[in-house]
């Protein structure tokens, strides 16, 4: 474990806490893409198939359980919670994410570390996570004004993978024969997709103005 990876995991956890706070405090999920939340639930379930077979550490197992439980809880809230579900922007959250799932799985069948069920699903989860934010970014562009907690949620979610890139660079430099091409390349693509969001987020922070993404 290095400081970059710890910062990445803590930032990721923070993004989830901010989203839970937004939904719990405002009893609303307006501005949140349910499709992105569902994609993340798939990402975690596909990536942590080894949850009960490979024990890495208490921290690792604990965080995996947190990520799976929180993503499923958020999807449940957005679908079934009597109050929260009413504020879902159904007519704006229309990204056809089936293609993202299909393309990620097809790529995982071609490019993986080992051709085993666990490794193919792991690669699938890496590729799917890289594009999982797209429905959310599209929703932000369509929904005009973005409330602070939603903006912070997306910012931390994008920042965590940037920390992971620093972590991979650090491990590449300090550990012999360390390579993570699948996660590394996907991580760069994932972080690049946030580039324009980060720009407008920085502008809104500098001008102390409302975050607004151009349509």
């Amino acid at each position: 474990m290095n400081i970059f990876r710890l910062a990445g995991d803590m930032t990721h956890l923070l993004s989830i806490l901010v989203l839970l706070l937004k939904i719990y405090a405002t009893k609303s999920c307006s501005g949140i893409s349910r499709k992105t939340q569902e994609l993340y639930a798939i990402v975690f379930m596909a990536r942590y198939l080894d949850l009960f077979t490979d024990f890495i550490s208490v921290y690792n197992t604990f965080m995996k359980l947190i990520f799976i439980a929180s993503s499923l809880a958020i999807v449940w809230c957005m679908r079934f919670h009597p109050v929260v579900r009413r504020s879902y922007d159904r007519e704006l959250d229309t990204f056809r994410y089936f293609f993202l799932v299909g393309a990620s799985f097809a790529l995982a069948l071609v490019w993986h570390d080992k051709f085993t069920l666990q490794e193919v699903f792991w690669a699938f989860s890496i590729y799917l996570e890289a594009v999982a934010i797209l429905p959310q970014l599209v929703l932000l562009q369509r929904s005009g004004n973005v409330d602070n907690l939603t903006g912070q949620y997306v910012f931390f979610l994008g920042a965590y993978r940037a920390f992971y890139i620093l972590n991979w660079i650090y491990r590449y430099m300090t550990e012999p024969r360390f390579t993570r091409w699948i996660a590394g390349i996907s991580g760069v693509v994932q972080t690049a997709l946030y580039a324009d969001f980060f720009y407008y987020y920085f502008i809104s922070w500098k001008n102390n103005s409302k975050l607004k993404l151009p349509a």
Binding site: D9, D54, K64
Partner: peptide, 10 residues
């Protein structure tokens, strides 16, 4: 020895 778990990250 077992190859180090190459999925020690989240």
């Amino acid at each position: 020895t077992e190859q180090p778990a190459n999925h020690d990250e989240l």
